[in-house]
């Protein structure tokens, strides 16, 4: 068993001894993770190591076999509906392809959480949706378009706008730059960094994009052997675990490191 990390009172997400399994297939076993307020945490791992499962488990979409998950000191598993809604109001999620509701326009999509969780007037909801559309850098005429009329990158931005609708404190991103061209991906990274600074977000992002990790992640959580190893990029690069060696010292990683660190510029 691993040594339980020290209790961090400022952690907004606290996972202890998490175990998830599907049938006999154990995905995570004895997994611990703390995410501190205001940091950008990248989650990486090989295919099939359960990155998305971890995200779904944190969000309460997937029941863990054992262990505790706390968001804002609120136990997620076994929470009442009321407690769960209180947490949901403070959390935003961007799914891989945006997961926009296909029967609603972009503006209507952004208004869904506002209509569900607040008693704001329709005019104000629409004005807030406009601000969010601006904030994520969508063109203004995208507001009245349906998700099927948008490109992949625009769908992600629209999904991000919806995730930001309630001004969440924690933002979960599932592969935000996957499927974007390098320019679009770099812009998206910049956007996340800007929003983090402007809105004081805590960001948890699953990514395979070494450029993203390098550019905006404060710390990186690596899924290894059903557990998580957390560290800054420098820490993890010095680690002698073979997978980490391959990951951070492969040809793609070297190219990403060679690029100027964009986080400093943002």
């Amino acid at each position: 068993m691993s040594v339980t990390p020290e209790f961090d009172p400022t952690a907004v997400i606290r996972i202890r001894d998490l175990r998830t399994q599907f049938g006999a297939n154990v995905i995570h076993d004895g997994l611990d993770l703390d995410v501190a307020r205001g940091e950008v945490m990248g989650i990486v791992g090989g295919s099939g190591t359960g990155k998305s499962v971890l995200l779904r488990t944190i969000l309460g979409l997937n029941a863990p076999a054992a262990g505790q998950i706390e968001i804002f000191d609120q136990e997620v598993t076994g929470a009442t509906d009321e407690e769960r809604r209180a947490v949901q109001r403070r959390v935003g999620v961007l799914f891989q392809d945006g997961a926009l509701f296909s029967s609603l326009t972009v503006a209507q999509n952004i208004e869904v959480p506002l209509a569900e969780h607040t008693s704001l007037s329709p005019e104000l909801r629409s004005e807030i949706a406009d601000v969010k559309i601006n904030l994520v850098g969508l063109p203004l005429d995208a507001a009245n378009k349906y998700p099927s009329e948008l490109s992949g990158g625009m769908r992600k931005r629209a999904g991000l706008a919806r995730a930001l609708a309630l001004d969440p404190e924690i933002l979960f991103l599932d592969e935000p730059t996957a499927g974007l061209d390098p320019i679009g991906a770099a812009r998206f990274d910049e956007l996340i960094g800007e929003l983090r600074d402007a809105l004081g977000l805590t960001v948890v992002m699953i990514t395979h994009d070494l450029d993203s990790l390098n550019a905006i992640c404060d710390r990186i959580a690596v899924l290894l052997d059903k557990r998580i190893r957390v560290g800054t990029m420098q820490n993890l690069m010095a680690d002698d675990h073979p997978w980490l060696q391959d990951y951070f010292h492969g040809p793609r990683a070297r190219a990403a490191m060679a690029a100027p660190n964009q986080a400093e510029q943002g």
Binding site: T105, A107, A129, D130, V131, I133, N134, L135, L140, D141, A142, A143, N144, D197, A198, L199
Partner: peptide, 17 residues
Amino acid sequence: RLLTTVRANDAHCPEPP
């Protein structure tokens, strides 16, 4: 800072048809 961000993003989207 938040006010500055919102000020920079206050353009109105066109009304739905």
